[in-house]
Amino acid sequence: MKAAAFDYHRATSVDDAIQQLGAADDAKVLAGGQSLVPLLAMRLARPTVLVDLNRLADLAYVRRENGELAIGALTRHRTVETAELVRRDVPLLADALAHVGHVTIRNRGTIGGSIAHGDPAAELPAVAVALDATFRLRGPGGERSVAAGDFFFGYLMTALEPDELLTEIRWPVLPQGTGCAVEELTRRNGDFALVAVFAALTMGADGVCTQARISVAGAAAAPLRADNAEQALIGSRVSAADAGAAADRLAAATDPPNDIHAPADYRREMAAVLGRRAIQRAWAQANRTNAGE
């Protein structure tokens, strides 16, 4: 388990990193290293160059900008998880981060690394899809923004070009009266999800659901936005029956993998169970929030 030889470049700026990525045949970005380093050690990844971002301090921040929350790609999971702004404005993100690996992993892993890696069973890509986050990418030709829903399109496959760098993730602030819930099924605490459901439901003044944002991890080759379940809930009072019906729709849309940890059928069935639990819990929280608790 020793990596094959590679060159190492410590990036001095975002432009420098982009230039390095463009210059090499097969360069890899080193951020937190929580996924990359094991792949290197097992020689499953054999880049020619590692471009290390860790000295780019200006890529690590959490700030409120234009009604959105902007988070620098190099911000560590733990920093985001514990940031007061995140807890207040995008609580679903904070809830989800608590499920990423263990604290030691979150101290090192970065939010941009997790998004760019694009593991369909990981929490961050799924939350980004649920909340319509946008990703700022920079390449040799300049900057572009890609919506989370257009970013992930297959197992570990994203819209990121080899010579592009993800620099920032922008999160819409959740409206007042929103309740959030994460339901995740893992074999052990801290493992990748067999299935996880992320839900943010907003209750209007009349007690009906005005906005629903739901996504599923571990349910398909890419994180899944459960639009059909959302549509079923909007305008309803989210009774137990409503929650169950929406969760069944959610499960029907999944195309989960079959592997040694669980068969696909099991995962699909669990998507329904976790979906129902997440919807009910999120709605209960929305209720409490509206009651001023």
Partner: peptide, 28 residues
């Protein structure tokens, strides 16, 4: 409850890391 060294029908072992061979941790 957790540990299993899994071989595929092709005779290949499928559990060669602690991500796949699940030792219980203090949480379990």
């Amino acid at each position: 409850l957790y540990e299993e060294l899994v071989y595929g029908p092709d005779g290949q072992i499928q559990t060669t890391t602690f991500m796949d061979y699940l030792m219980p941790t203090a949480s379990e």
